[in-house]
Simulated assay, not measured.
Amino acid sequence: MFHRLFPVTAGIAALLALSACATLTENTEQSVLVQTVLDHRQIAGVGCVLSNDVGKWFVTTPARISLRKSASPLRIDCKQDGTGWAYERVDSKANSSLWGNLVLTAGVGYFVDKNTGAGYEYPATLTVLMRPATERDAAPAPAAGVTLY
């Protein structure tokens, strides 16, 4: 009798463990709203680069963008000539799927979700505080034919 129930019990246990796996139940993409603020006012038309360890995304604010989730921080670099600049870092937070996965899979699924980023999320709205441009921040334009990276 035990030999007949063991495969069924093992199968049910495996399904329960996988049901909490964020890699299977959560998306690895996340939509976020990026907005820029200078002197308590929203500034439109600011170019921003968002990046983490799995990708880089470009946006002109305010805008909603879909990016890939990660356990790593999200770096945000924004600039608008004559207006200002910003450089911020936003940490990702573990979502509830990650903690359920840790408990149900005895920690194995935690490492899978950490590597795929499915168990983490960034804030839904990213408000970037701009710093005003100054004479010191202005750099001379590059010479003709010079490529900047």
Rank of each mutant, 00 (worst) to 15 (best):
P123Y: 10
L74K: 05
A118E: 08
I43M: 09
W99S: 15
G119Q: 02
I76D: 09
K114L: 07
K56T: 12
I76F: 08
G119K: 03
E121K: 02
A20F: 14
V103M: 13
F111P: 08
Y110L: 13
V90I: 15
S97K: 07
G117Y: 14
S96K: 02
D113S: 13
A71H: 11
T25R: 15
R75M: 12
E88D: 15
S31I: 02
G100P: 14
L50M: 03
D113V: 01
E121T: 03
T125I: 15
R75T: 14
T25N: 11
G82Y: 04
Y110D: 04
G109M: 00
T105F: 02
D113M: 05
G47M: 14
A124C: 04
K93Y: 10
L74H: 08
K56F: 00
T116A: 10
R41E: 12
T28Q: 06
K69N: 02
T105E: 05
N95A: 00
A124E: 15
Y110H: 08
D53F: 00
L18H: 06
I65F: 04
Y110V: 09
T83C: 03
Y122M: 05
Q80Y: 15
G109V: 01
K93L: 06
I76T: 07
E29N: 14
V90S: 14
Q42M: 05
T61W: 05
W57R: 01
T105N: 06
V108T: 13
R64E: 14
A124D: 15
Y120G: 03
W85N: 05
A63L: 07
G100C: 12
L104F: 11
T23P: 12
A20I: 04
S31N: 08
T125Q: 14
I43G: 07
V37M: 15
C78Q: 02
A63D: 12
S70R: 08
R64G: 11
T105V: 04
Q35A: 14
G82W: 01
V59Q: 09
A20H: 10
R64F: 09
F58C: 00
L18I: 00
G55V: 05
G55P: 10
A106F: 15
D113N: 09
L74E: 07
Y120H: 13
A86E: 02
T105Y: 03
G47S: 14
S19K: 01
V34G: 01
C48S: 06
C48R: 03
P73R: 07
R75F: 09
F58N: 05
V54S: 06
Q80K: 15
A22Q: 03
